[in-house]
Design a protein around this nucleic acid. Structure first.
Lengths: 238, 238
DNA sequence: CGGTATGTTGAGAAGAGTCAATTATGGTGG
DNA sequence: CCACCATAATTGACTCTTCTCAACATACCG
């Protein structure tokens, strides 16, 4: 059995994603298969990394969603970024790394320790590309929060999520699973859940977005991208 | 003459900063001295990197301020992050990197190509630590934009700038040079220049901040940090 | 069948934006 | 040294987005 195909679940999203980021060698694919078999589980709200604490090893998310979060003393919460299946967390180059943000599970998740990347290995490239994409996502997040209206923030984030999920084979052209509550979405977008709710209603009314039972569907992703001035993520010239 | 001391200008900020991020070997300090002597200049608004274009090599800012910016089609502008003397830009691990953001000079600047970091060299550690700090700064920026009020955003950013400048020996305990216009500050903080202006006046009235002729002085950085719930950046357990 | 978490709605307040004019400020050429 | 210009800072009046504080409805879970 190849790591590309699980028994019941079809292709493994993390393997699909990493293999798309760089052409993985057979050795590295084998290492990935091994790592994937050692999956751990964690329930919603479980902390995978704690800001200020040492990072033991980088993690690879296999299923479910997680998030990097920051809490202000008065209870305000900001989701810094979302972590989707196939994405890495706690990846550091420096000697004795300390986590710069807390990472928590949002849904029930499965994850494993990210296979070590020898310098020059194909993992090294995959991880580098992944890191570059993650940085691009942080920049997109900054732009959303700094200069976009509520409706634009929501659309832009949904478009980004669709694109990122698609990379792991988890989104179709228009639709994908969205396990976030409106409250969590607000925490990600710097809005209150009330305002998220009202803005979503407007987006639904105007036929831009459907959202039902944790399934999001974008009526016309291309047109929506155009409307919010979104640029596709591209990180290396291959 | 050591690279730690320029002729007229005292310690070189970039050298001070990198040497603080990791204990640099003599070889690496020598390489740094060589690189520093090849400084290029650029005037305000000059583009050092263009989003979507290949990155030829990473840069090291020697003097002046630069910024990573993103423009929306209708003219809205977001400063994603500020780049201060001694900080790096365009650092990428992947094979044929493409810039994920445009980098522009804000003031007249001097910069040089960042010396190559052989795996295992002390540069490697310094760059890794620098990258981790840069990521921490992006996360701080997200938190500011997402969950802080105008006054908190300004104070928090000023505190961060003081801390980052101090690392390169460019800030005292309370004061530092701040070459940003209120408009640029607004672009960094997701505010209009008008609102920045009014908020700054309130901060001055309350005795929190002085700002005169491009010099910022914080009356009580520690108390202000407390007030806005700021946490110091720490990235490695050394 | 509750009970808790999530989603919805309303009314009013507050923060931040817009537009437009006015006042410094710094640099330049005469 | 001064008039002039461009850039930056400041002010006022008004608008609008988003938040707050409830209350209420609905959905999911054991």
């Amino acid at each position: 059995m190849s790591a590309l195909r699980g028994i019941a679940s079809g292709p493994i999203p993390a393997v699909v994603r990493l293999a798309r980021l760089a052409a993985l060698s057979l050795d590295d694919i084998a290492a990935l298969e091994v790592a994937v078999r050692t999956a751990s589980r964690a329930p919603p709200r479980a902390e995978l990394l704690r800001e200020g604490r040492p990072v033991a090893h980088a993690g690879l998310l296999l299923s479910g969603w997680a998030a990097r979060v920051r809490l202000l003393d008065d209870g305000r919460r900001q989701i810094l970024s979302l972590i989707l299946p196939g994405e890495l967390f706690g990846m550091c180059q420096q000697p004795r790394p300390i986590a710069v943000s807390t990472v928590v599970a949002i849904t029930p998740i499965e994850w494993c320790v990210a296979p070590a990347a020898a310098p020059g290995s194909t993992f090294h490239d995959a991880y580098a590309t992944s890191a570059a994409r993650q940085e691009a996502a942080l920049l997109a997040q900054i732009t959303r929060l700094g200069r976009m209206t509520a409706a634009e923030r929501i659309c832009d984030l949904l478009l980004e999520l669709r694109e990122r999920l698609a990379l792991a084979g988890l989104a179709s052209e228009r639709a994908f699973d969205m396990p976030l509550t409106q409250e969590a979405l607000g925490d990600a977008l710097g809005l209150t859940s009330v305002h998220v709710n009202r803005t979503l209603q407007a987006l639904r009314r105007d036929g831009n977005v459907e959202w039902h039972r944790g399934q999001v569907s974008l009526s016309d992703p291309a047109a929506l991208s155009e409307k919010v001035g979104r640029v596709e993520i591209n990180v290396s010239a291959d």
